[in-house]
Design a protein around this nucleic acid. Structure first.
Lengths: 185, 185
DNA sequence: GTCTATATGCGGATAGAC
DNA sequence: GTCTATCCGCATATAGAC
């Protein structure tokens, strides 16, 4: 028998919030269960392990992030605006009620030296999708250096995310200024 | 009675290698002791806790990093070269026998949602020193935007470090090209 | 679906003998 | 300085009653 939809949503919400704000290893399964009001039996009927739950939350987060990014792109009317929309998406994504301390995917990658296959796959998918999307948007701005621009912007976005570890109050302002310099070349 | 110097060096080397390549939480104290050939009693006579050992290793690493950076700066003959020397230092630092998977300081910050005071201090010191040094070097290149350049370059360096989590074979090439765009403005 | 209890293993830290 | 044993707490995962 599958887990009831509302129960599963509570479980994923709790896991999302706790894993990525306090850390995966630092969050006992019990804490997730308590926050979700779900019993251990229910969790382990739906997921074979804690790691499977982590992977499931990462996949849901990835879908939500892409939707947010799509909205930010759609709101722009120039090729350049659409390429830079990733920073708008970062701002709105960060303002969501279910937050994370810096980046769920980089955080997961950082916590596991040898990540379980399902988690490694989720992280890889995030990176691959980011790079591919940026390259597609960059091609409309300057086709000759689309891949180069994508790699550069991915580094800038990643830097912006990781800067949150250094300065809690970090904003996307610096990343935006670096991106502007890249486009001005 | 203090720990003998050679014993302490073995302990710090083992901790350095394991904590920052496999992860702090993922590395049991026993693994460090086994690698160093040191007994638990000796460790706990020199350090009150595992966290104190982590902080000690971070501090040593910080000193070594600054020396490496100094050498890279000294090898340059232009203001611009000295500002960009941070990337040369990153390359040589990465090639050392005792490596880390991405960045020891960011890794420590990522692992602790509420870092012990000693560890938080080490991470903060790394960030503060980086920013201050970059600002000093940037002032010689363009005094009017020294602070802005420092913030931008710190983000680029941080992005380069975090990109290692996404792509294991990552090099400083992309970061260098972004830095070049920043200086070309 | 929940609750409580529990099997099982591991990690940090300490104590005593040598 | 090392070795061995051990206390203690915690975390994942499971089982049984309701």
């Amino acid at each position: 028998m599958p887990i009831r939809a509302s129960t599963e949503a509570r479980l994923l919400d709790a896991a999302d919030e706790l894993f990525f704000s306090r850390g995966i290893a630092a969050t006992p399964v019990d804490a997730v269960l308590a926050r979700a009001g779900v019993s251990a039996a229910t969790l382990y009927r739906g997921y074979p392990s804690k790691e499977a739950l982590v992977a499931a939350v990462l996949e849901r987060r990835h879908r939500v992030w892409l939707e947010e990014w799509d909205r930010a792109i759609a709101a722009q009317e120039s090729h350049e605006g659409r390429l830079l929309a990733v920073f708008d998406a970062l701002d709105t994504f960060r303002a969501r009620p279910i937050g994370s301390r810096w980046c769920a995917f980089l955080g997961a990658a950082a916590e596991y030296a040898d990540a379980p296959a399902e988690i490694a796959r989720a992280v890889r998918q995030d990176t691959d999708t980011m790079r591919a999307r940026l390259a597609g948007l960059a091609a409309a701005v300057d086709a000759r250096r689309a891949d180069e621009l994508a790699d550069q912007l991915l580094l800038v976005v990643t830097g912006d995310l990781a800067m949150r570890l250094r300065s809690p109050g970090h904003t996307t302002a610096t990343a935006r200024s670096v991106a502007a310099a890249l486009l001005a070349r």
